[in-house]
Design a protein around this nucleic acid. Sequence first.
DNA 1: CAATTTTATGCAATCGCTTGCAATGGCTAT
DNA 2: ATAGCCATTGCAAGCGATTGCATAAAATTG
Lengths: 320, 320
Amino acid sequence: MATLNDVAKRTNVSKMTVSRAINHPDQVRPELRDAILQVMTELNYHPNAAARALVGRRTRVIKLTIFEDMDITEPYYMMLLAGIANELNQHQYALQIATRNSYEVGECDGYILTGIRDSDAGWVARLDQPVVFFGRNRQGYDYVDTDNFQAIQTSTAYAAQAGYTYLVFVGIAVAEPFELDREQGFQEYVTSHQISAQIIRLTNHSHSATAYIKKHWAEFPPNTAFICASDRLAIGVETAIIDQGGQVPSDYGVIGFDGVFLNQIAAKRLTTMKQPLEEMGRAAARLLLTKIAHPEMSQASHNQEKIIINSRLSVAESTR
Amino acid sequence: MATLNDVAKRTNVSKMTVSRAINHPDQVRPELRDAILQVMTELNYHPNAAARALVGRRTRVIKLTIFEDMDITEPYYMMLLAGIANELNQHQYALQIATRNSYEVGECDGYILTGIRDSDAGWVARLDQPVVFFGRNRQGYDYVDTDNFQAIQTSTAYAAQAGYTYLVFVGIAVAEPFELDREQGFQEYVTSHQISAQIIRLTNHSHSATAYIKKHWAEFPPNTAFICASDRLAIGVETAIIDQGGQVPSDYGVIGFDGVFLNQIAAKRLTTMKQPLEEMGRAAARLLLTKIAHPEMSQASHNQEKIIINSRLSVAESTR
DNA sequence: CAATTTTATGCAATCGCTTGCAATGGCTAT
DNA sequence: ATAGCCATTGCAAGCGATTGCATAAAATTG
């Protein structure tokens, strides 16, 4: 592996000049700089990341920490990951994946955190680098999220206007901000519009939705719409309806949330609130890189940065 | 941040002794070593990865390279990733995600490659570190894979024994080893058992399967079983059958491949060839770490290491 | 044209850690 | 008792890059 010195000797300059040719190109005479760059490619020179990290105290590595008790195999995370990776790569940063028990392995310049529970607050507070959350948090950290409250209101309104007269919110049984916002958005809408409705809370698996809906089938008369907190739940609901002989979308409507590719493989392609996950991932990465580049900014003002990217209702075959 | 020196001063030894207490514990007097470890936790000391990497020429980072033209949001990759991450973390290695255009960002001790096409051979050959493939390859690199040939023969045999008399292989239109093995496994089975059959090749999307099956519905009499090369395709096939009024599983059988959670959300839970992706990911990680630890091994013998982990047929509601 | 600023380049120190060799002391072996 | 051998520990060098300061050359100025 070629080093700075190798390039320097071959060019008859000190390694300093070579270093500058890379990091401060304007401080080096143009023709000399070109000659140096030439030699660098000839020698297939690549700066040693470890040496740079050592002297510069920056690793050019960002860690995405997905906490273990979340299901890492959700397509949701994969899309997020794709967005983050793309944005970081553009800025010559590498992406590292970590879980709670591996967070100590290797150093980094900043963290993107997702799936964090309130009980992890202490752990987060101990992190020594800038942090951006994916999803709202109660501890005042910067975050990127979608407007869950507004999103559910939009889909609820859509269901109501489509003429469904009984609305069911199928939520996820966790007391996290994203879920509370969604429940509240639903609740306020049906209350203020005097619509008959109910709220169900389940674990986030399609089969639990299928089982529940089948068991309580009598409660759901024709003209019911199910507003679900995830595409997984929505698909489970749809399966139950079809199994019970219900007609989708004429008698029963189903709306999902997330907009991962799951919505495409439902028996009736799913109407869903589509989170722009790729874009949200990019936004999170950009915000974090900004914080790293301007540490004074986050210190001084100390006000929470919130980036809200709106979801969009994608209408398909599961609603009329 | 505490350094080796800080710990050394506090313990009244040279930093060398501290270093040894970490890396060669047996070379340090036990009581002294305990005292040092004590101080290390007191000071919340963590060895600086950059410094170690610089002097030791090992980064403790493994790169997982998923090539871009593959759909990174496949749950398939996410499960693989989970397996790799878990295994690496146990060995104090960090996992970095890279794509073709970001492979130069940051250094690493080894690569796990997946989704590589033959045309990328040149790129792979230029890598300066040990490589393990996920999936068979024609270039002689070590790899971890499932036995695709055998797997398809198993599911084909299962379909035949279940009494389906017309068998359709729904494959993916790429000339990659995994696909060719599956087609061949199918072909040989139906030929040697004199079963009427056909092979279809599609892009790996459920909707393309749905469209194709619907369009050619007349070709598929009752008692047909579809052996698919992915769960995505299988779900698309199932949707088409139901749309056409076909009965699953009594008249039509559907078998998937992969065993990602998709199989759970099909209208009829999918019978599928379940790849133990988590375990395969772990195996790939272990193999790579072994190669890193024993460079002489891979050099000297120079024979290709193949780890084959068998898939298992998981029978559910889409076959009788 | 001498004085001063600007532009280009080099020197030396340093980041935190590990490797090779030397030094110390206690203990065994003749 | 003297040589020899472990077991422990320290010293110095160096991994490959960057930062601050110094220096030389070139350009600007009154």
